[in-house]
Amino acid sequence: MLLIKPAGFLNLSWEQRRKLTGLLFVTPTVAFVTVFFIIPLLMTIFMSFHDWPLFGERAFTGLENYQELSKDRQYLKSLDFTFRYTALVTPPIFILGFILASLVRRNIRYIGIFRTIFFLPVVIGLGVSSLLWVWMLDDRIGVFNKILLDLNLVPKAQLFLGRPNTAMNVIILSVVWKTVGFTMILLLAGLQAIPDELYESAEVDGAGYFRKLLYITLPLMRRFIALALILSVIGSVLSFDQFYIMTRGGPRNSTISIVFWIFNNSFTYFKMGYGAAMSIVLLGILVALTGLQLYVLRERE
C-alpha cells in the first residue's frame, strides 16, 4: 500500500512521461515513412505537372503530361498488355494453387515435404527465376526444346520468346511456377479453416465431390479466395522483372508492361515528369485494387 501511494501521487507527470516515451519510440519509424513514402508520394504528384529532366531546367506544364499519355501509343499498348497478361496469368495460378492446396490439405505422412517443395520457388527472386527460365527456353541450348525434339513433339527448335503469343505463354508458365506456392498456402489456410464435420454430414446426405466443392468449400473460403486473387492480380499489374529479363520488352515491343514503360521513360529517356504522371495512373489502379481487397476482407467481421 505504501509503495503504491507515491506512484499514484506522481501519476500526472508519470503519465506525461509515458506519453513522451511512446512518441519517442515511434519517431524514427514515422520519420522514415514520412521521408521515404509520404514525401515521395506528394512529389510524384508534384512532378507529374512538370517537365522534369534529370539535369537542367524543369518547367511547370500543368496537365500536359496527362494529355500526352492519351496520345502515347506505346503507353496504351502497355496498359492493354498488362491487363491482358493479368487476365491470362491469374486463372492458371489460382486453379493450380487450388489443386495443390487440395492435394496437400490432409496431414498424411510426408505432406510437409511436398508443401515445402511447392513453395520453394516463391523464395527465389523473380529476377533470378527469370534468368533461369530464359535459359531453359532458349532455342539452341534450352532444355525444353531438347525434350520436345527428343520426344518428336516439334519438327524443329521453337523460338518461344521470339513470337508475341508463345512469349506470353512461356512467361506465364514461368511465373506460375514461381508464384503458385504462395496462392497454395493462402488457399490451404482457407481449406483448413473448414470443419471436417460439414463434409461428413454432407456425405451422409449423399453429396459427391462437386456438390461439396460448390456448396461447402468455395462459399466457406471465399475471403481466402478473394485475398489470393487480389494479391495475385496486384503482383501481375506491377510486373517488370520477367519482361525486362526474358524478352527485353520484345518481340516488337509486345511485352512492355506499365512498370516497364514507366522505367523506360523515367530512367532511360529521363522524362521523369512524364514517368510520374504514369505512376499516378498506376497508383490509382492499385489503390482501387487494394480498396477492393479491404472491402472484401471487411465483410467477414
Binding site: F36, F37, I39, P40, L41, M43, T44, M47, I234, L238, F240, V259, I262, S266, F267, M272, G275, A276, S279, I280, L282, L283, L286, V287, T290
Partner: peptide, 13 residues
C-alpha cells in the same frame, strides 16, 4: 497500399 514502383522516381531524385 502504395506500391514502391509508383514512387521510385522521386526516391531516385
Amino acid at each position: 497500399m502504395i506500391p514502391f514502383q509508383s514512387i521510385l522516381i522521386p526516391l531516385f531524385v
